[in-house]
Design a protein around this nucleic acid. Structure first.
Lengths: 105, 105
DNA sequence: CGGCATCCACATGGATACTG
DNA sequence: CAGTATCCATGTGGATGCCG
């Protein structure tokens, strides 16, 4: 594999989608349920600002990993759910999780 | 999974090890052979400076993903090879690669 | 050859306040 | 409630040069 191939290779694309400090935790939260409301997601990761959480969700949406579902209320209600393609990542992330837990530290 | 658990969870650790612009390409090069010499590795990714390549290799070494083998010559010869633990990543990265290639783009 | 030193550009994420 | 706007600190990687 040379550099030009690498730029667009599947591995590079996958890791780019997963890159971001809070992405794995977002995935883990969304795997557990069908839909999760923004505020609930945020309460599960209180160390992140809403700005940053919004950014990461927007990136995941652009990458077709999540679907954004807005209910037109006041106050607003917005839910996020994983796409089918994202759910395929489940078993792979489980393996990474397992492998990482076996590391000495 | 709450935030405190997440900080040290296996998934976060795995992705941290893989994070870095050139890490996947380093892995792919090293998977193909037993040992690879520094200069050969560098020639396979000519868009990266030697400084950056060195940094990424050092991080991988600190994470016990590669072993650094130095031959005391002049000019110096340094080889890198994957550890057994790193080789376990092979099948997982293959799945990520496959999944990434199936994405519409 | 295999680094390291230096300097720099840009991206990422944090803190806070504000708004429809 | 679900964002945006603004400002800022830090980190990551690129460019170049030097050195044993």
């Amino acid at each position: 594999m040379n550099f030009e191939e690498f730029k667009n290779c599947g591995l590079r694309r996958s890791l780019d989608i997963l890159s971001g400090k809070w992405k794995p935790l977002i995935f883990q939260n969304l795997f557990e349920k069908d839909e999760v409301r923004f505020i609930e997601l945020w309460r599960n990761m209180p160390r992140v600002s809403k700005k940053v959480l919004s950014e990461q969700l927007k990136q995941l949406e652009e990458n077709h990993m999540i679907q954004r579902i807005e209910v037109y209320n006041f106050p607003p209600e917005v839910y996020y759910k994983l796409t089918d393609k994202a759910r395929e990542l489940g078993p792979i992330l489980d393996q990474l999780h397992q492998w990482g837990n076996e590391l000495a530290h």
